[in-house]
């Protein structure tokens, strides 16, 4: 299908991200969780060996999920299935593409495999999503071929504070570009360490050239609404649905109610009446870990360059 290389290839990659807008992408570690996610209205699932809260608590090297696990999850659901590869680990990505996952997340949640280079995402047919904390990071990932950006936040904490910080940062940096002169745009490209062409594109539209989703610490319907109101186009929820704490799973019925409430809150993010209604259906939330109490070296968001 030669027609689908180059710019058409990118259109197809961004096209699937367009279809996920306004939706919730949920981390799942079993086929049963994938079924619960789909039943609750998830727009996609992320197949993982362990959710970020477990990875954070248990330590060790976090790698791509086992292919057996990914296949089980693919068989259990009709919605798109994403999976994570380690930063720079293009061989994991090649395996995930062979498995026909629908999106690859080159993720800071896993242990990085390369301290300098990210995956050349143009070399793949399958689309990639990457995390970013600021505009420069987002545009570097887009230059490498990412078809979707998500704010990094601080995964596995249930604390939304850095998801907010990174979204506000990116939105305000984009807004600043829209009023700059030509000379300032050149200087900006240097300051953001991002390609000038992409800086210009953002200056013209005030938006990233690919969809901009939010991740990293979203745990409640109110968190989802907050991120959507701040400019996120869809929501990733990791540990907040299926975990009560970093070691204890939530009962499936509680997880279902949380998942459903977050889905409804994402659709109706501007409607406080609905937000109240759906919040009342949530039995409990993940205990969480305050980001302000974390040491710099405990943070996942600093991975990636």
């Amino acid at each position: 299908m030669s027609e689908n290389n180059g710019s058409n290839g990118l259109r197809l990659k961004v096209g699937l991200a367009e279809m996920l807008k306004g939706g919730v992408i949920m981390d799942v570690t079993t086929a049963e969780q994938a079924e619960i996610a789909e039943r609750a209205g998830a727009a996609a699932v992320m197949a993982l060996e362990r959710v970020p809260a477990q990875i954070r608590a248990e330590g060790g090297v976090a790698r791509m999920a086992s292919t057996k696990k990914i296949r089980e999850i693919q068989a259990a659901t009709s919605i798109p299935v994403m999976a994570k590869c380690r930063i720079g680990h293009f061989a994991e990505a090649q395996i995930l593409q062979e498995l026909k996952v629908d999106y690859i997340d080159e993720s800071e949640v896993l242990t990085p495999a390369d301290e300098l280079h990210h995956v050349d995402k143009h070399a793949f047919t399958v689309p990639f999503v990457c995390g970013a904390r600021n505009l420069g990071e987002a545009l570097r990932r887009i230059a490498e071929g990412a078809a979707m950006i998500r704010t990094k936040g601080e995964a596995g904490t249930g604390d939304v504070v850095h998801a907010v910080k990174h979204m506000r940062q990116i939105v305000s940096e984009m807004r600043a570009l829209t009023v700059m002169s030509e000379e300032e745009l050149f200087a900006s490209a240097k300051n953001h360490q991002a390609p000038y062409e992409l800086i210009r594109m953002v200056a013209k539209t005030g938006k990233l050239p690919v969809p901009n989703f939010s991740a990293g610490g979203i745990a409640t319907p109110a968190d989802a609404s907050l991120m959507m109101q701040l400019g996120a186009e869809a929501i990733f929820v990791g540990s907040g649905i299926f975990m009560n704490s970093s070691s204890e799973f939530a009962p499936p019925e509680d997880a279902y109610k949380r998942a459903r409430a977050i889905v409804l809150a994402t659709t109706h993010y501007k409607d406080p009446k609905v937000l109240l209604e759906v919040s009342e259906d949530v039995p409990s939330s993940m205990k969480g870990l305050a980001v302000s109490g974390l040491q710099e070296k405990e943070m996942l968001q600093t991975r990636g360059w």
């Binding site: 996920l20 939706g23 889905v263």
Partner: peptide
């Protein structure tokens, strides 16, 4: 529109 029909049904 396009999207996930299962999500439309649930919501």
């Amino acid at each position: 529109p396009g999207g996930e029909s299962t999500t439309f049904l649930k919501v």
